[in-house]
Design a protein around this nucleic acid. Structure first.
Length: 489
RNA sequence: CGGGACGUAGCGCAGUCCGGUAGCGCACCUGAAUGGGGUUCAGGGGGUCGCGGGUUCAAAUCCCGCCGUCCCGACCA
C-alpha cells in the first residue's frame, strides 16, 4: 500500500517524476485549454518571492517598472525583419473585436520589444533622456507545439527589461550587468548554479546583435536556459525611429537591450533540487520556511503541545532580527492526520525545516529540527530556537547550492575530447561538455543532428577549461572558440 | 504535420481479446478508537464507460466516423 504512494523515482523516468512532483506538490495544474497552465498558490508563492528579489535588484540598479499593452498591431512585428521571422510561427493573432473583423489584426505579445520601442521613440528626444531603464512584469503568449508545465506553456509570466542607451558600449555593459544580476540571483536565491555565456548566431534572439544566457544543469544532465539578456544594437531603434539629439547636436539611433526570466525558473528549481521524496525548496524562496508538526498522545498532551507550538509561532514569527519580514512558519495542527503522514506531505512540498514538538521535547525544553535537504535531525533548545533556525536555514541554503554545483561539475567534461567519445557521452548519461568549435554553423547543425546535443553558449572565461582545446569537436579544424555542448530543454 | 499509445468516479487503473447487473486502490463524507515516520475498524456518497452512428434480445466490450490527451520527431524561454 505504501508502495503505491511512492513517487516515480528520478532515475526511472525524469519526465514522469517531474510531472508527478509538480502536480502532487500542487505547484500547478493543467488548464482546460491545452498547453496553458494554472499556477496554484504553492507555486505562485515561490514566484512571488522570486519577483520580490528580482524587483528589488532591478530597482537598486536604477530600473523602473511600467506596463505596456497585451495587444500589438501586427505591422509592428514586421518592422524588424529578423524579429518577425523568429516569432511569426508562434504568434497568437486576434482578428475580431466587438463582433467585427479588425482592419489590422492584433498580435498577442510574444515579447514586447516592438510596442515598447514604439513608445520609447515618443519619450526620447535628447541624450539627456538616456539611459531609459524600464522593466515590465507581464504575461506573454507563444504558440508552442509541445508544452510542459512551467518549462514551456502557451502563456507564461515573466519579467522583461527594456533599455535605451547613447552608445553601443553602454548598452553592452547593461546587457552584461543584467546577466550577472541573473546569475547572482540564481546562485544565491535559487541555489541553482548557472554557466553564463554568449549564444551562437543560430541561437541568438530574433533581432539581436548578441544574446547572453544563463544555463543551468538539470538532474537528467540536460541544460535549461534560465535567463537571457540581449544587446539589440540599433536594430529596433531603426525600425521604430528611436532617435535622439546627441551632445554635439547631431542625431543618432539609440542602443537597446532587453532581458527576461520567466516562471520557467520554477521548473528549473524543481528539476535542480527535487528528490525522490518530492520538492526541495531553498529557504530564501520557500513560501514556508518552517513547519511545526506537533505530536501528542493524550488530550492533555495535545493542549500542552499546541500551546507551546503556538508560543513558538508567535515569538519566532515576530523574532526581532527578522522584522519586518517574519520567519515564515506554519503550525500544522490538523488532528485528522498522524504525524508521519504530515511528514510525508511537507517533504513532498519541500518545506526546508520541519520542527517536531512533542511531550518528551517539552520536558527537555527542546524541539527537534529536521532538515529537508539532508534529513538530518538535531535537537534545539527552546531558548535559542530563533537563532538556531536562522543558522540552519543559512546552512541549508548554502549546502543546496554546493550540492547542485558539485553535481554539475561531476557531470561536466572539460578539455580535449574525440567526437566518438562525445557522442558516447551524449547518448549515455548526458553532460555539460566544454569543447572546441570551429565557428561554423554547419558543424553546429551536424552535431545537433547526430547527437541531439546543441551548443548552449560560448561560456564566459571563468567557466572555460584550463587547457583550451585546439581543434573543433566536429570537423577537427582549428577551433576558434570553446563552446558548452549539452542536450537541452 | 509524420510515428506510437491511450480515453471507464476527483486521481491512478482493471474489465475490452471471448457482448450478459460498472468494479478496485487512493481521495472524499459519518462514527469510534489511534497518534515520535504514510493508523485501524465499521458504515456511506459519487460514473450519460470521450462523442456520434451502426450490428445485436442485449454494447465499456464488436464495426464505422469524429473529438481529445499523452509520448517520440520538426519548433522553442
Amino acid at each position: 500500500m505504501a508502495e503505491e504512494r511512492k513517487l516515480t523515482t528520478r532515475a526511472e523516468d525524469f519526465s514522469a517524476w517531474y510531472n508527478e512532483v509538480v502536480l502532487r506538490a500542487e505547484l500547478a495544474d493543467y488548464s482546460p485549454v491545452r498547453g496553458c497552465m494554472v499556477i496554484r498558490p504553492d507555486g505562485f508563492g515561490i514566484w512571488e518571492r522570486m519577483q520580490r528579489a528580482l524587483d528589488d535588484a532591478f530597482k537598486a540598479t536604477g530600473h523602473r517598472n511600467a506596463y505596456f499593452p497585451l495587444f500589438i498591431p501586427e505591422g509592428f512585428l514586421h518592422r524588424e525583419a529578423e524579429h518577425v521571422k523568429g516569432f511569426a510561427p508562434e504568434m497568437a493573432v486576434v482578428t475580431h473585436g466587438g463582433g467585427k473583423r479588425l482592419d489590422e489584426p492584433l498580435v498577442v505579445r510574444p515579447t514586447s520589444e516592438t510596442i515598447i520601442y514604439a513608445m520609447f521613440a515618443k519619450w526620447v528626444h535628447s541624450y539627456r533622456d538616456l539611459p531609459l531603464l524600464i522593466n515590465q512584469w507581464a504575461n506573454v503568449v507563444r504558440w508552442e507545439m509541445r508544452t510542459r508545465l512551467f518549462l514551456r506553456t502557451l502563456e507564461f509570466l515573466w519579467q522583461e527589461g527594456h533599455t535605451a542607451h547613447v552608445t553601443h558600449d553602454e548598452a553592452e555593459a547593461e546587457a552584461r550587468s543584467i546577466l550577472v544580476l541573473y546569475r547572482d540571483f540564481m546562485d544565491e536565491w535559487m541555489a541553482m548554479p548557472v554557466v553564463t555565456g554568449q549564444k551562437t548566431e543560430s541561437e541568438r534572439f530574433a533581432g539581436a546583435l548578441r544574446t547572453y544566457s544563463c544555463e543551468a544543469m538539470m538532474q537528467d544532465n540536460k541544460a535549461l536556459q534560465a535567463g537571457t539578456s540581449h544587446n539589440l544594437g540599433q536594430n529596433f531603434s531603426r525600425a521604430f525611429d528611436l532617435t535622439f539629439q546627441t551632445e554635439s547636436g547631431g542625431s543618432d539611433h539609440a542602443w537597446n537591450t532587453s532581458w527576461g526570466v520567466s516562471t520557467r525558473l520554477i521548473g528549473g528549481l524543481v528539476m535542480t533540487h527535487g528528490d525522490d521524496r518530492g520538492l526541495r525548496i531553498p529557504p530564501l524562496l520557500a513560501p514556508t520556511e518552517v513547519v511545526i508538526v506537533p505530536i501528542w498522545r493524550s488530550d492533555s498532551d495535545r493542549v500542552r503541545v499546541l500551546e507551546a507550538a503556538g508560543r513558538i509561532c508567535q515569538s519566532l514569527g515576530s523574532w526581532e532580527r527578522r522584522e519586518p519580514n517574519r520567519l515564515r512558519i506554519h503550525l500544522d495542527a490538523r488532528d485528522t492526520l498522524k504525524p508521519g503522514a504530515k511528514y510525508y506531505e511537507w517533504e513532498l512540498r519541500g518545506v526546508p525545516i520541519r520542527l517536531e514538538l512533542g511531550p518528551r521535547d517539552l520536558e527537555k525544553n527542546q524541539a527537534v529540527l529536521v532538515r529537508r535537504d539532508t534529513g538530518a535531525k538535531t535537537p534545539a533548545s527552546l531558548d535559542t530556537l530563533g537563532e538556531d533556525i536562522e543558522q540552519l536555514l543559512e546552512t541549508i541554503q548554502g549546502s543546496m547550492l554546493e550540492t547542485a554545483r558539485a553535481r554539475r561539475e561531476e557531470h561536466s567534461v572539460r578539455g580535449a575530447i574525440t567526437y566518438d567519445r562525445f557522442r558516447e557521452i551524449m547518448n549515455d548519461e548526458g553532460a555539460f561538455v566544454y569543447a572546441g568549435w570551429c565557428g561554423s554553423a554547419a558543424c553546429e547543425a551536424k552535431i545537433k543532428d547526430e547527437t541531439k546535443a546543441t551548443i548552449r553558449v560560448l561560456p564566459d572565461e571563468e567557466f572555460r577549461s584550463a587547457e583550451r582545446p585546439g581543434r573543433c569537436l566536429c570537423c577537427d579544424e582549428v577551433a576558434t572558440a570553446e563552446a558548452l555542448w549539452a542536450k537541452a530543454y
